Amino acid sequence: MVSWQIGNNVLEIVQGDITEQDTDAIVNAANSRLAPGGGVCGAIHRAAGPKLAMACAQIGGCPTGEVRVTEGFNLKAKYVFHAVGPVYRGAPEDAELLASCYRESLKKAVEMGLASISFPAISTGIFGYPIREAAEVALNCIAEFLRTCSAGLKVRMVLFSKPDFEVHREVLHHLMSGREG
């Protein structure tokens, strides 16, 4: 684990399974239909149980860059934030849509009075976002948000694979060495 104090907030990077996180909320790398899928989305739906898919079906869908919230059902987390990241095309708006997933999730967590939230590397699976570029967008967005946040929020990036964890660790190290927390 790598940890960085930003004001009275904390940003952590861990290697692990997002479905096992004991944070108040976990973020699902969702598709726009909020339907069960593969990768992180499939793992979260399997761990949460069938009520998650029913709750998502009642919501109906979510545009790219936005977030919808459901209960966590059988997960340790009380809530699941469904963030729809962009399918990577190499276009300038890809980074803004990806950043919006993180920013909107963080805003929602603060609005709801949550103390902690865990994120996966949104859009880096089947949506094809290159891991280093995605890590730079995610960590810069989270750090920027936490610099202006007084909520005492713990934000955890949860990377399933060792290579993805290492990329995020390197990006965070670069970010930390370039700025004071």
Rank of each mutant, 00 (worst) to 15 (best):
M1S: 10
Q5W: 03
I6N: 02
G7M: 12
N8S: 13
V10E: 11
V10R: 15
E12I: 06
I13V: 14
I13A: 01
I18P: 01
I18H: 00
E20N: 11
D22K: 14
A25F: 04
I26C: 03
A30G: 08
N31V: 04
S32E: 13
L34D: 03
G38F: 00
G39A: 00
G42Q: 02
A43W: 03
I44M: 04
I44V: 10
I44E: 02
I44G: 02
R46H: 07
A47M: 03
G49A: 11
P50W: 00
P50C: 05
K51D: 13
M54K: 12
A55K: 14
A55E: 08
A55G: 04
C56K: 08
A57P: 00
A57E: 07
G61T: 11
P63S: 05
T64L: 01
V69C: 11
V69L: 01
V69Q: 08
T70L: 05
E71C: 14
G72C: 12
G72K: 06
L75E: 03
L75H: 05
K78M: 05
K78H: 10
F81K: 08
H82R: 03
A83L: 12
V87G: 07
R89H: 13
G90C: 09
A95I: 12
L97C: 11
L98G: 13
A99H: 12
C101I: 13
C101R: 13
E104F: 11
L106W: 07
K107P: 13
A109C: 13
V110E: 05
M112E: 09
G113M: 07
S116C: 14
I117A: 11
I117T: 10
I117Y: 00
S118Y: 10
S118F: 03
P120K: 06
G125N: 12
F127T: 12
Y129P: 12
E133F: 08
A135P: 09
A135R: 11
E136Y: 08
V137C: 04
V137G: 05
A138K: 13
L139A: 07
C141V: 11
I142Y: 03
E144F: 05
F145M: 03
R147C: 07
R147M: 08
T148H: 08
C149R: 06
A151V: 10
K154F: 00
R156I: 12
M157D: 02
V158C: 03
S161N: 02
S161T: 15
P163M: 01
D164R: 01
E166T: 07
V167M: 04
V167K: 02
H168M: 03
H168W: 06
V171E: 00
H173V: 07
M176H: 04
E180G: 15
G181S: 05
